[in-house]
Amino acid sequence: MAQAQKDQENPLLNILINVLAPVLILSHCSKEVGKFYHIGPVWAMTAALALPLGYGIWHFINHKKLNIFSCVGLGAILLTGLITIYLWSSEAAKPHVALIFGLKEAIQPLLLGSLFLITHRTPSPLFRTFIYNESIFDIRNIEKVIAEKESHPDYEALIWKSTLLFFGSFCISAILNMGLAYYFLGDLTPSTPDWKEVYNSKVAQITGWGFLVIGAPLMLVGGYILFTMIGGLKKLTGLDTDRLMVPR
């Protein structure tokens, strides 16, 4: 039990380091002068990117395994850094900042969602890891009844339909993320004064709101998927809800 607790990632620490801390750094530390913590836009961006990157490396060293979501997150951090280097390579802001950053923001949820489709036919589908898993459903009993009733094709079709729905929630997140980038960065032009500081502030807002934009569709669609999975499994197996779910 102690080892399992050690291996389990702390979700609050994850949110603090990967979302809240970068948002606060970019929002409050990007000014050149003033307070002691005003370290300028370059160092603020560096610190904001270094925190989640360092945490990802630390997590891998301590847990000796790759978390697919952490890997995608680290990829997004590195991509943010590369885009920032490109955008800051000239004194004035480049045109189409919103488009460039918006595409980056859309890629992350699309990549995550695509992994659910790609792993569907593998021995470890992500859908079964995060939604249809043995901590929620009594899968052993369900699949025993499915085998007895010879309903395996319909059973697989139900899982595939639910996987597609989950992928759809990531597509919604991608569209909303693109909209956020245009909303916050759309007015950033080559004539914007102190544009690097403004850019950092806008990126902080996108990061904070993006966490909600990705999370809200996932929660709503996840709840709907659970509802449809339970209804579909009832029809296929004849079991009631109590026998489908793991006792609490």
Rank of each mutant, 00 (worst) to 15 (best):
M1E: 13
Q3I: 12
A4K: 10
Q8E: 13
N10S: 15
L12Y: 14
N18P: 04
V19L: 13
I25W: 01
H28Q: 10
H28F: 15
S30Q: 04
Y37N: 10
I39Y: 08
V42E: 14
W43M: 14
M45N: 11
A47N: 01
P52G: 10
P52W: 08
P52S: 08
G54M: 07
G54Y: 06
G54D: 07
I57M: 10
W58I: 09
I61N: 05
N62Y: 05
H63E: 07
K65Y: 03
K65T: 11
K65N: 10
L66S: 10
N67D: 14
I68D: 05
F69K: 00
F69H: 08
L74Q: 11
L74D: 12
A76T: 13
I77E: 13
L79K: 00
L79V: 05
T80C: 11
L82K: 03
I83F: 07
Y86F: 14
E91G: 00
A92Q: 12
A93Q: 05
A93I: 02
P95S: 09
H96K: 08
I100Q: 08
G102A: 02
G102V: 10
G102N: 06
L103G: 11
L103T: 04
Q108F: 12
P109V: 12
L110S: 11
L110Y: 08
L111R: 00
G113M: 04
S114G: 13
S114W: 10
S114L: 15
L117Q: 06
L117P: 01
I118F: 12
I118W: 08
T119G: 06
H120M: 04
H120Y: 15
S124A: 09
P125Q: 07
P125Y: 05
F130S: 06
I131V: 15
N133C: 02
E134T: 14
I136E: 13
D138H: 13
R140A: 15
N141Q: 14
I142C: 07
E143I: 06
K144T: 15
K144G: 11
I146P: 08
E150C: 02
S151L: 07
D154C: 03
L158G: 01
S162Y: 05
S162P: 05
F167G: 02
F167Q: 09
G168D: 01
G168P: 02
S169Y: 05
F170L: 00
C171G: 14
I172G: 11
S173D: 02
S173F: 01
L176W: 02
L176K: 00
N177P: 01
M178K: 00
G179K: 00
G179N: 00
L180M: 04
A181C: 06
A181G: 06
Y182R: 05
Y183P: 00
F184P: 06
L185K: 05
L188Q: 07
S191Q: 13
S191M: 04
T192A: 03
E197T: 15
V198H: 09
S201T: 11
Q205A: 13
I206K: 01
F211E: 06
I214Q: 06
G215Y: 06
A216Y: 07
A216M: 13
L218N: 05
M219R: 00
V221M: 12
I225P: 01
L226E: 12
L226G: 04
L226M: 11
F227H: 15
T228W: 04
G231W: 06
G232K: 08
K234A: 03
K234G: 10
K235I: 08
K235N: 14
K235R: 14
L236Q: 09
L239F: 13
D240H: 06
D242Q: 13
D242A: 15
L244F: 07
L244M: 09
V246H: 08
P247A: 14
